[in-house]
Amino acid sequence: MTSAAPTERVPASPDLIKVWFRFVPREGWLPYDTEGLWATRLSEDTARVENAPFLQDGLAEGEVVRFITDADGLHWSTERVQASGNCTIRVLPVPTGPLGRSPHAVHEHLAPYGVSGEVFSQEFPLIAYTVPADADLKEIKMLLRRGRQDGWWHFEEACVTDAWRDAQPPPHGR
């Protein structure tokens, strides 16, 4: 078993626990089959996810998951019990593009829309962004598509909502 171990935020509260997720690694992608995310314990077996996943698809920050605790004290997610309405979008800067490998440059473009994110590592500047449910989804989608078209970054929609799917930017930008 190989776990993703990006630079992590340090827990700021005793209620924060690490909840682990298992998945099948994607061919040609990072060779991990588990990912641990910080979560606020809500009950004996539920917790609210507190950061965006780099590898686990179908999950966004703010969602409530049920978990079991194994004999080693690790908390393993078993199901999502409440959606947050947030989306997870992953952005990888194109090293030869106008922004280079800079996660900071990517963030400067997305920050005005209220998104927040974390960088996997300096060597692999993948950014996992949380797009809040109340963000301007049309504008964010338009910016992401333009950035991909202009060679700034690649992006993937790791967890999206119906509101995200329904938000259609103008066909030719503004």
Rank of each mutant, 00 (worst) to 15 (best):
A135Y: 05
L110D: 05
V131Y: 01
A135T: 08
N51F: 01
K18D: 15
T69R: 12
L55H: 07
Q82T: 10
S121N: 09
A163V: 02
S3D: 13
R9L: 15
P14H: 10
P31W: 11
G85I: 05
L126I: 03
K138N: 09
A39L: 09
E63I: 02
R48Q: 13
N86A: 11
A128Q: 03
A47N: 05
C159D: 02
S43A: 13
E139T: 14
A4E: 09
E139Y: 00
R148Y: 09
T34E: 15
T96F: 11
L59F: 01
P53Y: 01
G73T: 04
L30K: 10
A111W: 03
P98A: 15
V160E: 03
Q168V: 13
Q149C: 01
I140G: 01
G151W: 09
E156W: 04
M142Q: 14
C87K: 00
P93D: 02
I68D: 12
P103C: 06
L55G: 00
L99N: 02
Q122F: 10
A128I: 06
D57H: 02
W152A: 09
W152I: 01
H75L: 04
P6H: 12
Q122P: 00
G73I: 04
T2M: 13
E44Y: 03
H154Q: 14
R165N: 13
L55Y: 02
W164M: 04
V65I: 12
A128F: 04
Y129L: 03
G173T: 07
E139C: 02
W20T: 07
R66N: 02
I68P: 00
E63H: 00
C87D: 13
L74E: 11
Q56M: 14
V49L: 14
G36T: 05
A83M: 03
L16Q: 15
D45I: 00
L42T: 05
E35C: 13
I68W: 00
A71D: 11
H75T: 03
T7W: 09
C87V: 06
L30T: 06
I68M: 03
E35S: 12
G36S: 15
D162C: 00
F54R: 03
G151P: 06
D15R: 15
A83H: 08
R146F: 10
F23V: 10
E44W: 07
E79R: 11
G147S: 08
W29C: 08
Q56I: 02
D162S: 11
L59E: 00
L37P: 08
P125S: 05
A71M: 06
E35W: 12
H154W: 14
T46Q: 12
E27Y: 07
P14N: 12
L59S: 01
T7K: 13
W29V: 10
T96H: 11
L59V: 06
A12G: 14
E79K: 09
K18Y: 11
L144Y: 04
P125K: 03
S121C: 05
T7Y: 11
V24Q: 13
H172R: 12
A105T: 08
Y32K: 04
A12P: 01
N86G: 07
T88R: 09
D33H: 10
